[in-house]
Design a protein around this nucleic acid. Structure first.
Lengths: 263, 263
DNA sequence: GCCGTCCGTTCAGTATGCTGGACGGGAAGG
DNA sequence: CCTTCCCGTCCAGCATACTGAACGGACGGC
């Protein structure tokens, strides 16, 4: 869990230094604020210490990492580039506008995520009034199997594409006992989702928290489908409340699917 | 403005490919969602086309950029890394908690930024009830001269450090006619801020919008000072309202300065 | 206080990634 | 339809970025 074990696919890249730099950034992302030195990076990646030091120096000059004493951690410019990526996706901007205007949903936690393989990356979040202390922030990756966004997106895939993605998957990570234990369970859930039109995460991600998600077709070429979700405490999820929240989700889907294009 | 003009400091880096990769990412950040091809990158950076293509290939394999047809744009993993950077700064997490609990401020737009040279980068934002359609999102960079956060942070610098940063600066970018026109104006404002204890951006960033900012010492080693601000429409900025908002800012400052450390 | 260990940095030789030119495909214009 | 231009990709020779070992310093333990 803690080790990125070995170098997966340092495979003959046409620009090895860049590939390695990306691996270094990944390690630093895992390490959080804790600075990582060249030696440790070299050990974890199985690469020469000198090369690592050179690459880290270049990354530091670029502002992508910062020196802390003699070690390194992610730098400010990473956040700036991340912001630029999010700003480039017009659905993100529209999401914020729309989420704020939802009659009921604006009170709750509303999220936008994009499917990538069998995981989802959260792109935007609207924090409502209700305090749901969920730790996942923007840029966070979670397994698609147990999240409303992930399941809504998976359910939208053509069956052959879905099969391809589930191919290598045997064991599903279970954050809570409510999460699906097997791929078969997941497939049955996906079928129900296709039928029903929306996905439910009933305490699968976190105890006491439920989540409703709908799929949103991505406008970005070369990107997977998106999904939006509304999260709330299970004790507050009365039938009446859920009903209006689902209406809001539908409204959100309509607004974000709308292929309006600025020239 | 649109061109990154030439290659500034391709200067003998110890890992040129990495330095170039960073420049490529910068160009893509400027280009937004518009894909950029190797030829255009080569032209804008003054670098060989083949090398660019190789580096872009490596970046794409790493997920840092994505292929759009035959061109490239920023990729999802950039956002993930940016999220990891933000998550690594504990002041960001605490900011969200505290901003939500501010008696008056929670209704308004509250932001957290960090000073970098003579610019600020926004690290976090709390959106209140009041719709202030300000475009600056997380990761956005703005000149420190005309923002409440930037001025609050600048005012906290030792004079020699301030002088060093203002050295090369001659002309200040003016987003609105209310922004400072000269460095001398700025210096006078900074003196008032030191006196007063907080900074005011009175329609300097956007017409009809005022902003109050306080400096927050950074806990991150090797990082500049931070600042928090509350933004609201000028028509709503009555003396009474501003007074309670300033109290909230003070509370925010106290909470974020507090050097509580988890082991 | 001494020594063993580990770290980050330096340096020269060499394998190797970078370069510039050539190739094939696509779109726009005549 | 043919031409022209421009783009992205491929390839071999050369310059150069990478490597591995050695160096000096900092800690921690025997």
């Amino acid at each position: 869990m803690t080790d990125t074990t070995i170098d997966r696919a340092d495979a003959d890249s046409l620009a090895p230094a860049v590939t390695r730099a990306a691996l270094i950034l990944d390690v630093m992302a895992e390490s959080g604020a804790e600075p990582v030195g060249p030696s440790e990076l070299a050990r974890r990646l199985g690469l020469p210490k000198s090369s690592i030091a050179n690459i880290c120096g270049a990354l530091a000059d670029a502002g992508l990492v910062r020196r802390i004493g003699t070690g390194f951690a992610l730098g400010r410019r990473i956040a700036e580039l991340g912001g630029a990526y999010l700003a480039s996706i017009d659905q993100v901007q529209e999401f914020y506008d729309l989420a704020r205007r939802l009659p009921a949903g604006s009170e709750e936690t509303v999220q936008l995520a994009i499917l990538d393989g069998v995981e989802v990356t959260y792109l935007a979040r609207h924090d409502g009034r209700q305090p749901v202390r969920l730790s996942s922030g923007i840029g966070r990756r979670l397994p698609a199997f147990s999240t409303a966004t992930g399941k809504a997106a998976l359910a939208s895939l053509p069956t052959d594409e879905l099969d391809r993605r589930l191919e290598g998957v045997t064991r599903l990570p279970q954050a809570t006992p409510h999460a699906h234990a097997s791929v078969d369970d997941l497939r049955r859930d996906l079928a129900r989702i296709r039928d029903r039109g929306y996905a439910i995460d009933d305490e699968e991600t976190m105890e006491g928290v439920v989540c409703y998600g709908v799929m949103i077709p991505s406008r970005q070429p070369g990107e997977g489908p998106c999904a939006a979700s509304i999260t709330l405490l299970k004790v507050r999820a009365t039938d009446a409340r859920v009903s209006v929240l689902l209406d809001d989700l539908e409204q959100l889907r309509a607004g974000l699917s709308d292929p309006l294009r600025r020239s």
